[in-house]
Simulated assay, not measured.
Amino acid sequence: MKRFIASVSVGFALLSANSAPAADGNAKRGGEFYRACVACHSLEPGVHLTGPSLAGLWDRPAGRIDSFVRYSPGLKSADFSWDADTVNAWLADPNAMVPGTYMVFRGIERDRDRADLIAFLRIAMAQGGAKTVVEQKLVPPDYVRGQQPEPLSGALEHAQVTAIRHCADSYFIATADGRETPYWEMNVRLKVDSRGTGPAPRKPVITGAGMMGDRVSVIFSSIDELERFVAEKC
């Protein structure tokens, strides 16, 4: 572990020395770059997507949000806080800074582009930053929430799953409108959304998961519900 932490420190030092951000970044232009971040991050406190919420993280230790459980071992044991230098090194090459990071992002090569995004993040990641960046018109309001799934409670009858049976290589999915539709088992994804955006208990929801219409996701409110709902029956 000491060797790993030392390699992280060395990697950060080298990146900081070789990729220092340009001074006086443009926060408005940085907001345009932030568009690439909304798929994985929100700016709302406690709202985690693929990556953790960025709310209030400026000048806070990396890898320390208790409600986010998907940090890589490197970030869990990291010994740095998010400031202009560390964010710059991270944006330049996350995997070089923290080897084995789970973040799938190749990095931003141009110093000026990183400086602009850092100028934006300095505001957005401060306390109350989500409200500030919208008030200053740095980003539109939908950037703040990120690509959060739409709430699934109150789905229409054709999307309310009432029964699922598995037979041979197929799932037969019954819905509240009285239909039962067969799907090849490899085209069905069984998921859990335990957050407030998920389906109501005992009311799983089916959604499309492909452009051809032959792939679907069935989303449950809990693992226990998933296990109890799917029956092996021909």
Rank of each mutant, 00 (worst) to 15 (best):
226 L>Q: 11
126 A>K: 09
169 D>F: 05
34 Y>W: 12
52 P>F: 09
39 A>T: 09
198 G>S: 11
47 V>P: 00
226 L>T: 04
123 I>A: 00
183 Y>P: 02
165 R>I: 00
17 A>F: 10
229 F>R: 02
116 D>I: 02
18 N>H: 14
66 D>G: 01
147 Q>H: 15
113 D>N: 11
222 S>E: 01
22 A>I: 06
194 S>R: 10
7 S>Y: 13
72 S>C: 07
7 S>N: 15
153 S>T: 10
22 A>K: 12
83 D>V: 08
8 V>H: 06
187 N>G: 03
4 F>W: 07
165 R>V: 05
106 R>T: 12
184 W>H: 04
163 A>I: 04
116 D>P: 04
225 E>C: 04
18 N>G: 14
49 L>C: 09
116 D>Q: 03
66 D>K: 14
17 A>L: 11
224 D>W: 01
12 F>S: 00
194 S>E: 11
107 G>W: 10
202 R>M: 06
162 T>M: 05
72 S>E: 09
164 I>A: 01
37 C>K: 08
35 R>I: 07
49 L>M: 10
109 E>Q: 10
186 M>G: 04
130 A>V: 08
216 V>P: 03
160 Q>C: 06
136 Q>M: 06
205 V>N: 07
218 V>N: 05
140 P>T: 12
59 D>I: 05
136 Q>P: 01
233 K>N: 04
180 E>N: 04
205 V>M: 07
170 S>I: 00
156 L>Y: 08
125 M>P: 03
79 D>E: 07
160 Q>D: 06
62 A>C: 05
77 S>W: 10
47 V>G: 03
179 R>H: 14
167 C>H: 06
110 R>C: 02
39 A>D: 05
222 S>Q: 02
71 Y>Q: 05
221 S>Y: 03
1 M>I: 09
58 W>Q: 01
228 R>V: 00
11 G>P: 13
147 Q>G: 01
226 L>S: 06
52 P>K: 05
55 A>L: 07
133 V>T: 06
222 S>A: 04
206 I>Y: 06
211 M>W: 12
218 V>P: 08
69 V>N: 11
105 F>A: 04
50 T>I: 10
159 A>F: 13
168 A>S: 10
195 R>G: 14
8 V>W: 07
202 R>C: 02
108 I>Y: 03
106 R>E: 14
229 F>L: 01
85 D>R: 11
9 S>M: 00
184 W>E: 00
63 G>F: 09
95 N>C: 09
97 M>D: 14
67 S>E: 15
149 P>V: 08
199 P>W: 04
148 Q>L: 10
17 A>C: 05
61 P>N: 06
1 M>R: 13
233 K>R: 11
145 R>Y: 13
138 L>H: 04
35 R>E: 13
220 F>P: 06
142 D>H: 15
202 R>D: 13
215 R>A: 00
180 E>Y: 04
134 V>S: 03
111 D>R: 15
83 D>E: 14
10 V>F: 11
96 A>K: 15
154 G>I: 08
11 G>A: 08
178 G>S: 15
15 L>V: 03
214 D>K: 08
24 D>S: 14
